[in-house]
Design a protein around this nucleic acid. Structure first.
Lengths: 244, 244
DNA sequence: ACCTGAACACCGTTCAAGT
DNA sequence: ACCTGAACACCGTTCAAGT
């Protein structure tokens, strides 16, 4: 069990960044973001709170490292990785789905991600993959960058709402009951909203996510056609793999 | 100046919800969300911190009231209000622009809004107006509700990034320098990202917002054509005002 | 009815001192 | 080098008591 390339010289070091982030993510799943405290995390690690600051200058840095690890493998979703010759729009959608899945995998995952700006390899790799798909499809730099931001913003925003609505009515009651009551208490004031209430307070978040994804992809497709100056247009039907 | 219908009987009441929210918004603009403390707000109001809890059961409730007031008049943007016979897509885009403008108008406005779930008249009125525009254009309940969420999520997500990037590099350095350095420090690892860097780290946020808006609207337009069961299709060109 | 004063149970962060 | 112990400067929230 003694790995030969261990550079540890002095004591075994009970604390290291990897274990700290791992325990922090476990604590997040158990107690939620609001209960994720430097003191509580230190307790779970069997250490004093001050010790955490030897590896993370600030709590924000710890949260950023957590967000970075959450996105592991999100840049290489199984579907898109297994079918590199698929339609660009399907690869794009799969990347967005992988991101949503990564955020949903942990309690308050979207909130953690939205509050940080990781520049780690996983986060950057995700962006790299997505921009790569778009550029191969003929998008120029500007459009690819803007598309990345639009899809990522939609995905994070959606998952934020999804996780807010799913947790029990603690401090900030999400849509379910509060919205319903507020609308129906004034019968004639919000007629259109009242009609749309069943969908808005429904629990089929996947349907809403797929709707937005479909709308975005369709919009991008028309952009591809009517468009600007593209060197080559691809992905109009289904095949058309392109190399180099 | 003594309004006849004032129900105040005892003392003038130095504190009231309206003034409290107003002062809180001023404090937000001056110091930012992280510095908006119940104690500091109480100081600005010339009162003890505990007194705030007679009108707001929790700080979250105060933030919700702030978010609600921010959205005042966002449901009736000048452009869309002045031209009720305009294309539905232009009215939709104007509503999104009004929402972005409302959030940008105050420091950390997007962060305050994203962290709350107001069910007040302004927030509900905004949703009502948007769903109304969509239903008049022929969208069914489900599509209208999903579109509202997609547009709102994109707008909030975009403005969140915009305000994060605009403020000085305090605790959480946004894109400008950090991202640039992280990408360029490993030359060959993120080639596509590196190409898109100028746009991603650029400061023309309006261009990025309008891009996403255009993509969403175009996607919704194709949905309108290929679509489902619509009673009537409208807004395909420009005119076509419809009443009752 | 409305607010004060003071406390309760915490926070993130720092830093001498130990080992 | 790595962690402890203890402090600093705060938090949100509650609640008897005053006026």
């Amino acid at each position: 069990m003694s790995s030969p390339s261990t550079p540890a010289r002095g004591r075994p070091a009970r604390l290291d960044p990897d274990r700290t982030v791992g325990t922090a993510l476990e604590l997040l799943d158990e107690a939620g973001l609001d209960a994720l405290t430097m003191r509580r995390l230190a307790d779970a690690l069997g250490v004093q709170a001050g010790a955490l600051y030897r590896y993370f200058a600030t709590k924000q840095d710890l949260l950023t490292a957590m967000a970075e690890r959450m996105l592991a493998d999100a840049g290489t979703p199984p579907a898109a990785a297994a079918t590199p010759d698929a339609d660009w729009s399907e690869r794009l959608a799969d990347l967005a789905r992988a991101m949503r899945a990564a955020l949903l995998a942990r309690r308050d995952g979207a909130r953690v991600f939205a509050g940080t700006h990781s520049t780690g390899p996983h986060t950057l790799g995700f962006a790299e993959t997505m921009i790569g798909v778009l550029r191969e499809a003929g998008f120029d730099d500007r459009d690819a960058a803007h598309t990345l931001m639009a899809v990522a913003n939609f995905t994070v925003g959606h998952t934020l709402e999804e996780q807010a609505a799913l947790r029990p009515g603690s401090g900030d009651p999400a849509d379910p009951e509060r919205l319903c009551q507020a609308v129906t208490v004034t019968p004639g004031r919000f007629p259109h909203l009242a009609t749309a209430l069943p969908t808005l307070t429904g629990t089929d978040f996947t349907a809403g996510f797929e709707f937005g994804l479909r709308v975005l992809v369709q919009g991008l497709r028309t952009l591809d056609r009517t468009g600007h100056r593209h060197g080559y247009a691809a992905g109009h039907g289904g095949g058309g793999r392109e190399r180099s």
